[in-house]
Design a binder for these strands. Structure first.
Length: 269
DNA sequence: TCTTTATGGTGAG
DNA sequence: TCACCCTAAAGAT
């Protein structure tokens, strides 16, 4: 589930349900018990999302840092009653009108203000936080030889893009994933940033990634699309391109599989 | 009942 | 580049 839009959505919901309230904090799994005890009963001041990173800031306690990684997940109810936590639940938080369980996080720990700043400091501009990161994105992308599909996953260049968005953004712009970053025109670099802003913010609003455009939706609206109708290329190897019917292709770039249409995204090696 | 897969990232070599 | 970490659900047997 987690690309940038997911994390910002979690921050928004947790701010609404838990922010400004005293929160009961514990660790059903036990692996976070000592830290949970330091937060238990404190007031949660604010939840901040930066790229794929979450920071829970408390009154009188260190910041709770959470990174979901590939398999991490928050399950949240807008009431204090919830089903029992599973044995894998690392962290549980409960306020008067909300309960949330965290499973499988890559990172869940308390951090100092200094460490919090270091983590945020490594990140490139986040297109969900601010639209005004285009010049910084272009600067960090730089005249690199790395494939653009690798650069888009590098959180130091742009924060919040994941494996689905990188494939879909490159399809929408007609750019082959192997294209070296240095070979992109300034117009393509600008378009990558602008499209990232639009698409990730759309993802925050809808709560899922939907990149297909109205021309390919048929008579249906964006919210009515089934899960297998939302995307152009991600995980569609061998299936016909929605625009030109050419079979979608797949290869690894930067250690992750990616997908593209050889006709709509010409070039590569 | 296995094995595989997943929208992520780190650290060793 | 590879091994590894985390959990749950889907797919194979």
């Amino acid at each position: 589930m987690p690309e940038g839009h997911t994390l910002h959505r979690i921050a928004r919901r947790h701010n609404a349900l838990l922010g400004g309230r005293k929160v009961e904090v514990w660790s059903p799994q036990g692996r976070f018990s000592a830290e949970a005890a330091m937060l238990d009963g404190r007031r949660l001041d604010e939840v901040g999302a930066y790229g794929k990173h979450l920071f829970y800031r408390w009154d009188g306690a260190p910041t709770l840092y959470v990174h979901l990684g590939l398999v991490g997940r928050f399950t949240t109810w807008s009431r204090s009653e919830a089903p029992p936590a599973t044995s894998g639940t690392r962290l549980a938080m409960r306020a008067a009108d909300a309960t949330t369980y965290l499973t499988g996080p890559m990172a869940c720990r308390l951090v100092s203000g200094e460490e919090e700043n270091e983590i945020i400091g490594t990140l490139g501009p986040d297109p969900i936080r601010s639209r005004r990161g285009r010049a910084e994105f272009a600067r960090r992308l730089g005249p690199r030889r790395v494939p653009v599909a690798a650069a888009l996953l590098d959180q130091r260049i742009i924060a919040g893009i994941g494996n689905v968005y990188r494939a879909e953004l490159l399809f929408l712009l007609g750019i082959h994933p192997d294209t070296p970053a240095a070979a992109l025109t300034p117009e393509q670099v600008d378009a990558l940033w602008d499209l990232s802003v639009d698409q990730l913010r759309l993802g925050v609003e809808h709560g899922r990634i939907v990149t297909v455009r109205p021309a390919e939706m048929g008579a249906r609206g964006r919210v009515d699309l089934d899960d297998d109708e939302r995307l152009y290329v991600y995980h569609r190897d061998g299936l016909p391109c929605r625009r030109c019917a050419t079979p979608i292709r797949m290869k690894e770039v930067a250690g992750r599989r990616t997908w593209w249409c050889p006709v709509c995204q010409p070039g590569g090696s």
